[in-house]
């Protein structure tokens, strides 16, 4: 499985990656990283991604806009996306779900919740 972690914080990307690799199920996945939505879109267009873990507030292209672009693309319409963001208001969650995210996790990342959401997605 190839997992793309998109966050403008390198530390946050490492925390998410280390959280996942600490579980046998995800230890041998291939991990890709991007610091913004534009680089993420380039990676998604150039190789197969099985899971996108996506921050919202980022430079160049934010996470919400990337979700809208991906869902408008027939090839990526079903790519599993979990938004991982500090945006905690209900209206933000609703906006992200309407844009097409499969699930939503509020930072700081809870390992337990992340695992539950991955299990719910069958990953």
């Amino acid at each position: 499985m190839t997992i793309l972690i998109v966050d403008d914080s390198r530390i946050m990307r490492n925390i998410i990656k280390n959280t996942l690799t600490g579980h046998a199920r995800y230890a041998n996945c291939q991990y890709l990283e991007a610091p913004d939505g534009r680089e993420a879109q380039r990676l998604i267009q150039s190789q197969a991604i099985d899971l996108l873990l996506l921050d919202w507030n980022m430079p160049m292209l934010n996470g919400l806009e990337l979700v809208k672009r991906l869902r408008a693309d027939a090839v990526q319409a079903k790519l599993p996306i979990i938004m991982i963001t500090s945006e905690s208001a209900k209206y933000s969650v609703i906006e992200a779900v309407k844009a097409g995210v499969n699930d939503y996790l509020i930072k700081p990342v809870s390992e337990k919740l992340l695992m539950e959401k991955l299990e719910r997605l069958g990953l």
Partner: peptide, 12 residues
């Protein structure tokens, strides 16, 4: 970023 984003929940 996380403090500001998390605080929005209490100011919905």
């Amino acid at each position: 970023n996380i403090i500001a984003g998390n605080a929005k929940k209490g100011l919905e």
